[in-house]
Amino acid sequence: MADKIKFALALLLVAAGVAGFYLLSAQPTVLRVLVVLAGVAAGVAVAWVTEPGRRFAVFAADAVTEVKKVVWPTRKETLQTTGIVFAFVVVMAIFLWVADKSLEWALYDLILGWRHS
């Protein structure tokens, strides 16, 4: 129950920051943005001390650990794969254009006879 109250408080703090942005419309934009950032920071700080907030922190740390385990492709591999994809797209575009023009010719010229003047 305490976690739900903390989450509600966190949402209210974020909402207060956003409301402050609009209520301070006569103030400089920098101050208005700082009010929003302060509301978001306060909301995150309150949400962080809840049990779901702690679980999220552990999840985020585990995600960072898993990303570090990924073997990322080299620049050469990335460029080669990108080139292959572009070449395939060009070949498919040409194939689809030829198929479209062939069907157009077959339908309009042969079957319907619309292009004969």
Rank of each mutant, 00 (worst) to 15 (best):
G83V: 03
T81Q: 12
V85W: 07
V46A: 05
K101T: 10
G43C: 12
A45E: 07
A38L: 11
T78S: 11
D100T: 10
F56S: 11
V46L: 04
F88Y: 06
A63N: 11
K69R: 15
V70A: 09
A106F: 07
L103D: 02
V36L: 10
A87Y: 01
A61R: 15
A47L: 07
L107W: 12
P52V: 04
V71Q: 14
F95G: 03
W97V: 11
G43T: 03
T81M: 13
Y108K: 10
F95Q: 03
K76E: 15
V98F: 10
T74W: 03
L103T: 02
L110N: 09
A87K: 11
I94V: 15
V64W: 05
V46K: 03
E66A: 15
Q80D: 13
D109Y: 11
V90K: 04
V71M: 07
V67C: 08
K68V: 02
G39M: 07
A61M: 07
A106L: 14
L79P: 02
V64H: 05
L107S: 05
T78V: 09
E51A: 11
Y108G: 06
A61L: 12
K76F: 10
V71C: 00
A87P: 00
W97P: 01
A93P: 05
L110G: 02
P73T: 03
A63T: 13
F88T: 11
R54T: 02
F95T: 08
W48A: 09
A60Y: 13
L110W: 06
P52I: 05
I84L: 14
A63S: 13
K101L: 12
A63E: 13
E51H: 09
S102L: 14
